[in-house]
Design a protein around this nucleic acid. Structure first.
Lengths: 235, 235
DNA sequence: TGTTACTATCATAGATAAATGAAAATTTTA
DNA sequence: TAAAATTTTCATTTATCTATGATAGTAACA
């Protein structure tokens, strides 16, 4: 299995700087997606998973601060590194307030940028460590044995689970009572960072409902949250 | 660490008033930069950081309102205190008031000016320490879980919240005790190129009141501020 | 003080985008 | 190669969002 690259969204309108940054980041082993204005950036964020966003404040159409604000309001906590031309502390305060995680003033030293990029990505991975679920999990009258790749439903019927099914179940149960966005699911279970036009996730959820729900029309455990993702609850 | 002086840009063309204000503000401990017309003001703003701008509406070359608009278009949210003569267009001054700034009508009392200057600077510093809201928020007997997209009202009833509802709730709660103008709401929640009729926002507020208020006719939390926007309070 | 103009409230209905569910197509595994 | 697992496709259903309109409330002004 090839080592997974971290993916970065680079939002910068100035061509030369954009290309230079892209080249250097790729040399460091990151996978770069390019955006040249605010709307493009927002669109990319809707469709892909990123480990980090590097964004200029001064952008055509929609400025970087507004973009960050929008990202945060959507509940997305991807780390954001803001680049600013102005050396004004007003920008700085405003940017950080809106949820940017770090801040660099142009012109900046390339070394410093790379250091910060590394730090931000590492930091966010650290925090995201959730307590792992045990080998078995019970909800209602259902049981899941993650190691045996096997489930038992309320009628005591054994259900053979596949690897992917187990991965998705684990992910949802680890994050129970929280909505897990589709991009996060794809990222965690499939390893994509591109959100394909696919109903694959939905099919897995449908299967889970068939396996474990009394009434798949009114799910108690596997809830869909429209336009975001899915949520597992057990109460 | 030496105490930092707050810096003010004073934009006033009338020499006598300008000098008088400058002297008094300096006596109060502020650092004053002078400008005597619109273009000068804009130039100063490009090059320096200011904690506050005091600006006459009636200026040679380029009037104060235009200068303010220009500043805002640049994404700069420095507080602006407008000085206006009584006969100036009420509409445009009203427009500025919406931006959480302040205005004074000439002739004004010096004490009052100093009070407002203080208030504006203090207020903007306050805002800058605003933190993003946590995953959960409680007000009265209500609870909102932003990660679960779920609310609980005083009767303990669970309310499934939608993505947009959560975005708007977050925005209002992040800015609690402040009026959030309708344009700001549209910009932050709906995005850059969507213009739903303003009734849409009202509908969301309406729902929030149904979910969380005892008496939706006399809201305790979700207040409308006529012709400006909405305000969330929790006291 | 009454008239007028504006703005918010609230219910309802329509539009739209997303999820469902079944089945077929494809890929992977044994 | 057969069987299992996974992914795609597509018609249908549904959740959510938006527009509309009737009413009530509020501010402005003579």
């Amino acid at each position: 299995m090839p080592e997974k690259k971290f993916s970065i969204l680079l939002v910068e309108d100035e061509e030369n700087l954009h290309e230079a940054l892209k080249l250097n980041l790729e040399l460091e082993g990151y996978e770069i997606t390019s955006a040249y204005d605010g709307p493009q950036a927002l669109k990319a964020i809707q469709n892909e998973y990123f480990d980090l966003i590097i964004m200029d404040v001064m952008l055509p159409e929609l400025d970087g601060i507004s973009v960050s604000e929008n990202i945060r309001l959507q509940g997305n906590e991807v780390p954001i590194l803001i680049l600013s031309a102005k050396n004004s502390s007003a920008d700085r305060v405003l940017g950080l307030k809106k949820g940017a995680d770090d801040y660099l003033t142009k012109p900046f030293n390339l070394e410093e940028l790379l250091l910060r990029v590394n730090k931000l990505i590492f930091k966010s991975k650290q925090i995201s460590s959730k307590e792992p679920v045990a080998d078995e999990y019970n909800f209602g009258k259902n049981n899941i044995n993650f190691k045996a790749l096997e489930g038992t439903n309320k009628q005591g019927k054994k259900i053979a689970l596949t690897k992917k099914e187990v991965m998705l179940l684990k992910l949802l149960i680890e994050n129970k009572n929280e909505v897990v966005p589709r991009e996060k699911i794809l990222q965690a279970v499939w390893g994509y960072n591109v959100y394909p036009t696919t109903r694959t996730i939905d099919n897995f959820i449908l299967n889970f409902r068939k396996y474990f729900e009394d009434d798949s029309r009114n799910p108690k455990y596997f809830h869909s949250v429209r336009s975001i993702g899915y949520k597992f609850t057990d109460n």
